[in-house]
Design a protein around this nucleic acid. Structure first.
Lengths: 189, 189
DNA sequence: ATTTTCATTGAATCTGTATTCAATATAAAC
DNA sequence: GTTTATATTGAATACAGATTCAATGAAAAT
């Protein structure tokens, strides 16, 4: 295995460990030493791979931002809005068990958007247009009389706030069963 | 004004300032110097009134825990569950403008429950039984066929997760209009 | 086989912030 | 009006945790 590949491998290990800890303990309560110990490696070595704790967060959020391709307007336009959102949530919740890191990624993206998080990461997370896209989707659903009346953008903001809250609850409390996606989408109906 | 009264007054000032900052910037990003400057007073003086930053948080969470009296099973038993919850949310959202500190208090209580928050405060916040009480309420609503089927406790957890997410969005984004309480409660129907 | 690169360690340092403290001002208590 | 308690300040200190660094080991490159 070439050196470059090894390095890439190790970086991934570190990122996945950090992701897990950031989500389960929170960014500020996760110490660099916690991450290093969990990988495991010495704390010093961690800085051979990443400049800083914040870079870890930024790197993760960038990955998250890049990975929102599955949630694109293209495929969303073809099927009824409610079906699309339900399907999206269903997949998300299935990730919670099958691919925890994908699930954690979404949780982290939501957390990164909050006040008090390091600015760079926050800006990247905020730049992801899931709220706008969902607003468009909701507006579409309203025209088709599938969704109730109301400011589509406000509805989108609240829809995601609810989903974020739910996902964090799941991330915190591992044995919490995932809710019925249709139940959640029904709040728009 | 007697010395004791003065001290009590000043403590309240500090607590209200801290509450505001904790909610708008987050606990970890709020520095003691920020609080002192906002009161305003010297940083040293703040420690004349409170032992530590954490004591401020704990004090606030204790107040929050004590103030949940309005959400009691007594009054909840008398009216239909959906009306009760809707009324509760309506009041909460009206507080957002009329009595911001009450609103902030609720937001803080929710935040304090999360992983990564100082243990003592977290435990107090977690000990408040709003989830259990709401679960009871939901179960009652289910018997009356007002609410949909499902594990009442899980529904309660998610209901509050959604409400918490919404309130944080409102706290962060001051000009966000408050959502229709009935719309939120409808997720249980 | 030798060289060279870089992965690795853990102790030393640096930094930001919470907390303490000695000195002073103020105003309540008497 | 004097005394006394305590409110107040800002600089000094303590501390936790991030970051650096000099030394060592291992294995890739040649």
């Amino acid at each position: 295995m070439t050196r470059k590949e090894q390095k890439e491998e190790r970086r991934k290990q570190i990122l996945m460990t950090a992701l897990d800890l950031f989500v389960s303990k929170g960014y500020y309560d996760t110490k660099i030493t916690d991450i290093a110990a969990a990988v495991p490696m010495s704390t010093g070595l961690l800085f051979h791979y990443f400049e800083s704790k914040e870079e870890l967060l930024v790197e993760l959020v960038k990955m998250g931002a890049a990975g929102t391709g599955s949630f694109d307007p293209e495929s969303a336009g073809k099927i009824p809005a409610d079906i699309f959102l339900t399907g999206f949530l269903k997949q998300m919740f299935s990730y919670a068990k099958e691919q925890p890191w994908v699930f954690n990624m979404f949780v982290l993206m939501g957390q990164a958007r909050r006040n008090g998080m390091p600015e760079e990461a926050r800006n990247i997370a905020l730049s992801v247009g899931s709220i706008d896209m969902t607003a468009t989707l909701i507006a579409k659903g309203q025209k088709e009389k599938i969704f109730r009346e109301g400011d589509a953008r406000v509805m989108s903001v609240f829809f995601w706030a609810a989903v974020q809250g739910i996902m964090e609850e799941m991330a915190m409390n591992k044995d919490m069963p995932s809710p019925d996606p249709e139940w959640i989408v029904s709040m728009l109906k």
